[in-house]
Write a protein that binds this DNA or RNA. Structure first.
Length: 460
RNA sequence: UCCUCGGUAGCUCAAUCGGCAGAGCGGGUGGCUGUUAACCACUAGGUUGUAGGUUCGAGUCCUACCCGAGGAGCCA
């Protein structure tokens, strides 16, 4: 007999004489002559209540079931006489598929996130983490659907890269050399003897590759893992995370900003509609203001704020900051939070940053001082998107690389593209986990990815 | 990497001025009951993060280290 998912049964409109469910015991209560077993199979937040009658031939074993055990239940789906659930299953047969030991660490009470991180292999079985990972899946799907509906092509850019200085954080080296005894040449490691014949690293961004595909397919996007070896210890950083990077030909900064807003709003609306039950859990237990926050994000127009105006607002703010606000310096976390949480109380897109604090590939504005960069800042999370219009003019790009100390030889193909039908184009990177934090109200990024990688932590 | 705070039973926490290491939950046993974070009774469970030190006596004070969290920087 084929198993039915619990999500389907809980949404039933009629009873059913014979169903099979398989899942894990969340809790069990005894009554006179029978036992209530609540089972969850991960298909939805809710459990289904199973009535195990004492007449079942393995009833003595069933009475010893504890949370975490895996069982299969065959029985009749009937309207529940009790309060708290519409349907329940009167079991005619219950198979114990996998017993759980009494040391099963998950209890029916609330656990701290810190403790659950130490049992990351089991935490998906809790209500909260089950909900996060279902939303994570739905958000992934929504991203593909959004881009497909907008005529974008999904592309795969390399995970291992030979570009050694893309300007975004520290890199993880990839090598097959014997680290204890590497081949040397003139006293230093001979990378020419390594697998690729030169130094290789894990990618920090698929952008430069994506630009090449955008120059052929028009509108493209990547959605894949990204690696940063930065020694960051914050609730917003992990060493391995997923990033969505659209790249659009014939698109300027204005077009880029409009698209970024449309995308965030589409995704937020999608999750609010498709994951109502799971989102409600976060609205109730994690962040009481979640629904209203997400309404603002999904419906209101985002503030467009030139960098210089942002500095101006901050300088005139009726409060002081720990770090001074000065034109030419990057905005600090506290400044971003003031703009989104206090001053505007909604997402803010800051654009036209000083060229001195941005990488070489961003397009130089006519003022020769700023570049066509933009950051989308949202309340509580801070920067969720970083993007720009790319420099499509060969001579300007060459000059910028020189100014930024980037060696042209490493990017010959990137420059070469500017010789053959170069067009204005733009793109951005959306932090997938940060988007999940925004959608769920979860405050630590380690709790929206199943097995987080952070400095000194690669368990599981 | 820097700053701040924390580490006591499987989990969440308490322990007064330095004076017998406790509770709830979870586990086990028994009872009761269409229950639903069920309830009642009993019971087992501890190298107080690690290593030193001060003291008649250290969970408590001192030193070093380890681990965790929050903030900062870096960024998505």
């Amino acid at each position: 007999m084929k198993r039915t998912k619990i999500a389907e049964l809980l949404n039933s409109t009629s009873s059913d004489e014979r169903v099979l469910i398989q899942g894990w015991v969340r809790t069990r209560r005894d009554s006179k002559g029978f036992s209530f077993i609540e089972v969850n199979d991960g298909s939805c937040l809710g459990n289904i209540q199973v009535i195990a009658d004492a007449a079942l031939d393995n009833y003595e074993d069933l009475r010893k079931l504890i949370a975490g055990s895996a069982i299969g239940v065959t029985g009749e789906l009937v309207a529940s006489p009790g309060k708290g659930q519409a349907w329940e299953i009167r079991a005619s047969r219950i198979d114990i598929i996998g017993d759980a030991s009494e040391s099963y660490p998950l209890q029916k009470k609330r656990h701290t996130d810190e403790f659950l991180r130490t049992i990351a292999h089991l935490r998906p079985r809790t209500n909260k983490y089950g909900a996060v990972f279902r939303i994570r899946s739905e958000l992934s799907f929504a991203i593909h659907r959004f881009f497909r509906d907008h005529g974008f092509r999904y592309i795969h850019t390399p995970i291992i890269t030979g570009s050694d200085c893309e300007g975004a954080g520290e890199l993880f080296r990839v090598t097959t050399l014997d680290v204890n005894d590497p081949p040397k040449r003139a006293g230093t490691v001979d990378w020419g003897a390594d697998f690729f014949g030169k130094e290789a690293n894990l990618t920090v961004s698929g952008q430069l590759s994506a630009e090449m595909l955008a120059m052929a397919l028009g509108d493209v996007y990547t959605f894949g893992p990204t690696f940063r070896a930065e020694n960051s210890n914050t609730r917003r950083h992990v060493a391995e995370f997923w990033m969505v990077e659209p790249e659009m030909a014939f698109c300027d900064l204005e077009c880029n900003m409009a698209f970024a807003q449309e995308m965030i709003q589409y995704l937020t609306t999608y999750i609010l509609q498709e994951c109502q039950e799971d989102i409600q859990l976060f609205a109730r237990f994690v962040d009481k203001t979640l629904i209203s926050t997400l309404s603002v994000i999904s419906q209101s127009e985002y503030v467009r704020l030139p960098y210089e105006e942002a500095v101006d607002i901050l300088n005139h703010a009726p409060r002081s900051f720990e770090f001074e606000v000065a034109s030419g310096k990057d905005l600090q976390s506290e400044h971003e939070r003031y703009l989104t949480e206090v001053h505007f109380k909604k997402p803010v897109i800051v654009f036209d940053y000083p060229k001195t604090i941005k990488p070489f590939y961003m397009r130089l504005n006519d003022d020769d001082k700023t570049v066509a960069a933009m950051d989308v800042l949202v309340p509580r999370i801070g920067e969720i998107i970083g993007g720009s219009q790319r420099e499509e003019r060969l001579h300007v790009l060459e000059q910028r690389m020189k100014d930024c100390g980037v060696t042209r030889e490493d990017y010959w193909w990137y420059l070469d593209m500017r010789r053959f039908g170069s067009v204005p184009h733009s793109g951005f990177g959306l932090g997938f986990e940060r988007m999940l934090m925004m959608l769920t109200g979860i405050s630590n990024i380690r709790d929206v990815i199943p097995f987080p990688r952070t400095p000194n932590s690669i368990e599981f």
